[in-house]
Amino acid sequence: MIRPGKMMQEVLRSIFKKPATSKYPAEKLEMADNYRGKLKFFPEKCVGCKMCMKDCPTGAIVIVKTGEKQFQAQIDNSKCIFCGQCVDSCFKKALLCTSDVELAQLDREKLKVVFQDESRPKDCPKQ
């Protein structure tokens, strides 16, 4: 039957239901495990083939050689589009997508992350 207020029942019922929205910053959101979020780099696995750099659509990742078989990844999260292509391109599985999506930052510089092997001495040249 055509009538106005067709949604009345549904609407009244939802007063007694839990709201579908959440108070976001107070209540954290849960992302699926395989969500493509912030990248993670394992320097000890990297062999410096730079396939990730080649395939990255935005040039967000830069691999720098810091010493004999030592590599450092400079990831600019402000450029990264979280496509995860670098993870696919890496033969040694030195890159990984975490499900961390909370990247908001007031300072652009803080979005640039440098991954390097902490156990080894630093002699990294600043690029």
Partner: peptide, 9 residues
């Protein structure tokens, strides 16, 4: 209005 729309408001 929000609660009727299943929002927190």
């Amino acid at each position: 209005y929000a609660r009727l729309q299943n929002r927190i408001g």
